[in-house]
Design a protein around this nucleic acid. Structure first.
Length: 610
DNA sequence: TTAGGGTTAG
């Protein structure tokens, strides 16, 4: 590192050791500022005049001055004359645009330093914005060159901090992370101004392991973390489902003397709502009580999170209570709160209630947005009300909104499920007309539609077309293919697809294994189904309610009620909550055996006998 | 510079 600092590539040039440049600014007429024109080859240069021309942006005259030389030499001259850095920047950018000049790294770094010395930080940010967009230098080469011009840690640190922020703003997470790492090696001090946006980008990109590494490294380098830094890290852990680690960060922030804010609590509550296990809504509710006890008032975001959480947990009635509580607390529900509840009703099959809510929001002066439309279209589709769904879809444009890929996919899926494949294909063409690009989900809907309607050749062609367009099959694509094979009684071939998935870098999900288990059960091969369950557990996936439902169904259909009962108890012991499907399976199994079920909403324990 | 809502597989 030290050797780097001492091996200057360029010695800053003072006016006294001015190099012998070979061009003259032949149009200028004012006297040169230089006292010794006989030794100065640019004796006719009037830097004041040139500066004025740049300041007034008289580029046509500058262009004439440049004729005998090149923009790069002219820039060098401006540097050497100690011209105002803002004027150099002006010329730098103009020459980039006008002559498509690719300025060298040395000139960039020299200008960064001049601007840093003059504390023109906004200008540095603006130049860095261009720099990261058009230049492809490694962080090390930039750091190395910066050090060649100055070893002032404060200036270099500010520039590097802004460079990392520029990478982040350019969504270049790779270079931003490299910059963060190398900055540590070079001893540059970073701030939350770059680290917080970097942390946030890493969370948004789902690189959760990197969040933890960054957080620990920020603490190790004694970077002054603030409330926002902690909140972003907590959000990262929550999104990764690492709720305990998120809670640990809350303790860390308290040690730093920073108290959790409403955003901290909202982030945690949302984490529990989305990733928590059994009883997650109790935990979310407990957090709500804790925040109130700590004198932090819930806001509209808190309520929206809880409404959505309860809806997704299958308890729309609880979500409605929260919605009313929100109103009782003098909060006017916002579009997000309405949308969460509208979607809850739609998923519950209660389209009328959803439409009433939509009307209510309009009366209260809120304009339904695209999310409202998409949720309602989906609700109508799931009730097989395709005509109404299509009419609502056409209303999107009338409201001045633009249908997006989700709007189209929802409708395409509905047409596929209804067997109206030609309509689905027509919609895909309409997507392209409206500049909406089909994504993997679009293809998944179509592939599933064609697979299920007995046209596997078209399904296969669509798969090839999707790959040809640069879209990689995702877990859902494989699940559709696995399902198609299982439906043909080819569960053994479906298992082979699991290996293909892993080779493609994808991780089979609960659903993947559940589909294969269901396939084997339908083939009557319970032993193979149980083998798949073991494989699933080996992969670190714990059986979920659907897994048990699939196996229970397999056992009931084979008349093995005793075994089914054992499984049911095992499911309860593992803290899994039976759902409506579980009850239906067991009830049907009992009926088949001539028993009259008397569950009334209660699950059997050991009362089942054969 | 930090938190919330909509689509596909079972």
């Amino acid at each position: 590192m030290n050797s780097l600092r001492h091996s200057r590539l360029h010695t800053p040039i003072s006016r006294t050791n001015f190099p012998k440049l070979t061009f003259f600014l032949h149009t200028q007429t004012t006297p040169s500022q230089h006292s010794n024109p006989s030794t100065n080859p640019c004796q006719n240069l009037d830097i004041t005049h040139v500066s004025q021309l740049i300041a007034k942006q008289h580029w046509s005259e500058i262009k004439t001055l440049l004729k005998p030389t090149s923009p790069t030499t002219f820039l060098q001259l401006l540097f050497n004359y100690g011209t105002d850095p803002e004027l150099i920047l002006s010329f730098f950018k103009w020459s980039q645009l006008h002559f498509k000049v690719s300025h060298c790294l040395e000139h960039y770094c020299r200008l960064f330093h001049l601007l840093a010395s003059a504390k023109k930080y906004r200008k540095i940010r603006s130049l860095l914005c261009v720099f990261v967009r058009i230049e492809r230098y490694s962080c090390s080469s930039v750091f190395h060159t910066l050090l060649n011009f100055s070893d002032r840690v404060s200036d270099n640190s500010v520039i590097v901090d802004m460079l990392i922020l520029a990478y982040v703003n350019n969504c270049d997470v790779g270079l931003a992370l490299e910059g963060f790492e190398r900055a540590g090696d070079y001893g540059f001090r970073l701030s939350v101004l770059s680290c917080n946006p970097l942390l946030n980008l890493v969370v948004k990109e789902g690189k959760f392991r990197a969040v933890e590494v960054l957080y620990k490294e920020m603490i190790r380098r004694r970077i002054e973390l603030n409330l926002i830094s902690f909140n972003i890290v907590i959000n990262g852990f929550c999104k990764a489902g690492k709720l305990q680690k998120a809670s640990d960060v809350v303790e860390d922030m308290k040690v730093w003397g920073i108290e959790p804010s409403v955003i901290t609590y909202n982030t945690l509550i949302d984490g529990y709502c989305k990733k928590g296990r059994t009883g997650k809504m109790f935990k979310a509710d407990a957090l709500l009580k804790e925040m109130v006890a700590n004198k932090i008032s819930p806001n509209e975001v808190t309520y929206s999170i809880l409404i959505d959480g309860f809806c997704k947990d299958g308890s729309v009635s609880a979500a409605v209570r929260i919605f009313k509580e929100m109103q009782a607390q003098q909060f006017t529900p916002c579009v997000v709160a309405y949308n969460a509840l509208i979607n809850g009703h739609c998923r519950d099959g209660e389209i009328d209630k959803a439409l009433v809510l939509r009307d209510e929001m309009v009366v209260s002066g809120l304009q339904p947005d695209l999310v409202t439309f998409n949720a309602l279209i989906n609700g109508l589709c799931k009730k097989s009300m395709l005509k109404e769904a299509k009419e609502l879809f056409d209303c999107i444009a009338k409201e001045g909104l633009y249908a997006n890929v989700i709007s189209f996919n929802t409708l395409i899926d509905a047409y596929c499920k209804a067997g109206e494949l030609e309509e689905a294909i027509k919609l895909r063409s309409r997507m392209l007309d409206q500049m909406v690009i089909p994504n993997v989900s679009t293809y998944n809907c179509l592939i599933d539609g064609y697979s299920k309607k007995g046209n596997p050749e078209t399904a296969s062609k669509l798969l090839d077309e999707m790959k040809y367009k640069g879209l990689s099959p995702n877990v859902v694509t494989y699940n559709i293919r696995v399902d198609a094979l299982c439906n043909k009684g080819r569960s053994r071939d479906a298992v082979k697809l699991l290996d293909e998935m892993i080779d493609a870098g994808l991780r089979p999900s609960h659903t993947t294994y559940n589909i294969v288990m269901d396939g084997y059960c339908r083939e009557g091969n319970l032993r193979a189904a149980l083998n798949v369950r073991r494989r699933m557990e080996t992969q670190g996936l714990r059986p979920n309610t659907v897994t048990y439902n699939v196996l229970l169904k397999g056992l009931c259909e084979k008349g093995k009620l005793e075994d089914a009962n054992t499984y049911l108890n095992q499911m309860l012991e593992k803290g899994l909550i039976p759902n409506k499907v579980t009850y239906d399976i067991v009830r049907e199994g009992m009926m088949e055996k001539g028993f009259v079920p008397d569950i009334d909403g209660h699950i059997y324990t050991s009362s089942v006998s054969t």
